[in-house]
Every structure is written in C-alpha cells, then in structure tokens.
Amino acid sequence: MNPITYFANPTHFNRLAGWLMPVFATGAVIAFAAGFYYALFNSPPDYQQGETVRIMYVHVPAAWVGMGLYMAMAAAAAVGLVARHTLADIFCVAAAPVGAVFVALCLATGSLWGKPTWGTWWAWDGRMTSVLVLFLLYCGYIILRHSFDDDERGAKASAILLLVGIVNIPIIKFSVEWWNTLHQPASLLRMGGSAIAPDMLRPLLIMGAGFMFYAGYLVMLRMKTVMLSRKILRLSEGE
C-alpha cells in the first residue's frame, strides 16, 4: 500500500479533530470572556499611554499566533518534504490564511496604537518592516500554493518557500534589539524576568491563550474543509 494514500486517509485526523475542536472552542470562549473582562475592566491604564494600552491585549497575542503559525507551517513543510505526509500540506494550506489574517490584525492594531502613542500610523522601524515582510511571505505562500495545476508540485514548491522564509522569524524576534528605534524591546520573554506589571500580564496571558485556542480551532476546521473539498474533487474526477 502506498504510504501517501494511507496518510491521506482522513479517519485518523478526523478522530483527533473531533475530540480537539470542542476543547479548543470552549477554551477560546472561556478565555476570551475572561480576557475581555480583565483587559477592559480589571486592569490599570498605563501611566504614560492611558487607556490605549489596552490595544496591547489584542496586538501582542495576534503577533504571537501569526509568528507561531508560520513556524508550525515551516516545521510541517519540512516533515512534508521528507516524509511525504500529505497531512502536512493540508495543515499548511489550512493555516496560511489564518496566520495571514492574524498578522494583518497585528499590523492594523499596531498602526491604531501607534497613532496616539508615537504620533504616526506607520514608521519604517525594524520590527514593523519585518512583520510586514512576514505578511508578504504569507501572501506569497498562498498564491504560490494555489497557482499550480499539479497539486503535488504546488505542495513541494510552496513547502520550500516556507522553509526559506523561516529566516525572517529570528529577524522579527531580535529586530527590536538590533535596530532599537521606535518599537519597544521585548518585555515578556527576556533575561531577568518579565517587565510587565502583573495586573497587565494576567489579561495578556489569558488573551494569548484565547487567541491560540481560537487559531487552533480555525485551523482544524479549515483542515477538515480542505480534506473534504479534496475528497469531492477526487470523486468528481472519478478516481
């Protein structure tokens, strides 16, 4: 039996998704409810930025999810190239638009946050430019993935693109240290512990969990959809 057709068989995945998706959905609802409460009502305004600091509770988790999904896609692309596991490609196809939307959300909220605090919608700062590049990479992946007639070739070519694009991730992470211009440096994951007040850290982490659950739910849902649409295509081609 061909391993590709074995792994393309969606039963295994569907069983896992059937179990995980309700968990993710409930997790997202609970975390969003708690996160919105803390973020909007039960956290202090910043002593410099005032109420606008609450944008952070959307901006930062969106960035985490956007970058995390890209890294997961690149890992899946490597697995897909080596082990020829079709599910890896399905994951990338399903996750790419989700990741792109979260990065776009991160850029949009960052822009809205930048206007009142920095006085500008956009600046060509290292962090912003590298996140914009991440967004372009997502777009490039999506278009490249869908412009092949031969699905398997498209999967391979776009997997290679994902792997090459991974160089951007450390650039995003360290951009605030290498080009210390406008965007503030890392304050959560850094040497010597977090620099955020606990009252602000709590809603941030809860919202982060909510965003991850929600993204996980969306990706699983889209994976099922991609598998079903491929099944329909196969059936209609009479194979």
Partner: peptide, 13 residues
Amino acid sequence: ALLTLLLVPFYIP
C-alpha cells in the same frame, strides 16, 4: 507577478 511577490520580501534587506 508571482516572482515579484515572492522576491520583494527577501530583497528588502
């Protein structure tokens, strides 16, 4: 057009 989209992010640095 696709080449441009794929390359511009890498050409920026």
